[in-house]
Computed example of a mutant assay.
Amino acid sequence: MIKRNVRLPGKMKRVKQMFLLTVSTILLSLSLSGCAIDEWVLEGSTNSVSHEELPQQDRLRVIFLDVGQGASQLLISPSGRTMLIDAGNNDQEQVMVDYLKQYGVKRLDIVIGTHPDADHIGGLDRVIDNFEVGEIYMPKIQANTKTFEYLLKSISNKGLKVKSAKAGLTLNWDEQVQVKMIAPVNTSDDKNNMSAVVKLTYGSTSFLLTGDAERESEQDMISSGVDLQADVMLVGHHGSKSSTTAAFLKKVSPEYAVIQVGENTYGHPKQTILDRLSKAGVEVYRNDLQGTIEIDSDGQKYTVNTER
């Protein structure tokens, strides 16, 4: 593993200044009972599992797992709580299980399936089958695929409650880390624009994890007035030109960007996006070039580790 030099965020001065200023479709697939407005309650939902944390570490670890042409982020909080956002494609199921074991994970406190595309949720069924899970969030949009069906069955078999992923939620994860869901803001028929987008703030450092959110969702986030600035940004939709608009990038104004991409026939990441990031002075990391990428924060500065 290659360890990069510890860097202070280039926008720390500005951050300090700011500081000073101070699924309806599930009904078609599975039987539901007792459903609340903001919750998909799968039949037999009890989920009374014990909580096990990883050792305290006084740092937030955000690990962009190399799952080829797909996406998955494993987060480990300063107190040892865990969160998994997406789990790569179907052919990455065992890879995901192996990754989690490698990082010492026995329980996932929060699981988020950003949207029902296979390259994001393909490995989630196997993960849920093999690990204790606390809470699971997914947007209310369907996919008529076996991948989505298998995920729903794994959720049902585990007796889990699925909570609706949407803007305005604050997730109870670690008292030292603020976790806010800032998209989807509006309802869309487009799966990508229904992607769950999560912002984490730890001390004066911040991460924005965007799923496959495209320009429609990016504009919705801008219009909502939510604070989008983040030092680390997951580039939307694997570097597709459908995402990371100039207006959105300006609002986020990141120091670092990560592109979760592998060998593909789509031309991801697009040169237009790479040029846009370069022009903005953003330091870019890519799974296809550097393998798994881990960006750690102690609340003030970052350490970047890459597999190669």
Rank of each mutant, 00 (worst) to 15 (best):
M1E: 09
R7P: 14
P9N: 11
K11H: 10
V15W: 04
V15S: 05
K16F: 13
Q17A: 15
Q17V: 15
L20D: 13
L20F: 12
V23A: 02
T25H: 11
I26E: 14
S29F: 04
C35T: 12
C35S: 11
E39W: 04
E39M: 08
V41Q: 05
E43R: 05
V49C: 11
V49L: 08
S50T: 10
P55M: 04
D58M: 07
R59Q: 00
L60T: 06
R61T: 13
R61W: 00
I63D: 06
Q73A: 01
L74H: 03
S77L: 09
G80I: 03
T82L: 00
T82P: 13
M83C: 04
L84E: 05
D86S: 04
A87Q: 10
M96Y: 05
D98Y: 06
D98T: 10
Q102G: 11
Q102A: 14
Y103D: 09
G104Y: 00
V105Q: 07
R107W: 11
I110P: 08
A118F: 03
H120R: 01
G123H: 01
L124A: 05
L124M: 13
D125K: 06
V127G: 05
V127D: 00
V127S: 08
P139N: 03
P139V: 00
A143V: 02
A143K: 09
L152G: 07
S154N: 06
S156A: 12
G159T: 01
V162H: 04
K163M: 00
L169H: 06
Q176I: 03
Q178I: 01
V179F: 05
V179C: 07
P184M: 08
S188A: 03
D190V: 11
D190C: 06
N192R: 07
L200N: 02
T205M: 01
T205S: 11
S206Q: 02
E216Q: 07
S217N: 05
G225E: 12
Q229K: 13
G239S: 08
A246C: 10
P254A: 06
E255G: 09
E255L: 00
Y256M: 13
Q260F: 09
E263T: 15
E263S: 15
N264H: 03
Q271Y: 10
Q271D: 15
G281D: 14
E283F: 02
N287S: 13
I293A: 01
S297E: 09
S297D: 10
D298N: 15
K301H: 14
K301W: 12
T303V: 15
N305K: 11
T306K: 02
E307I: 02
R308K: 11
R308I: 13
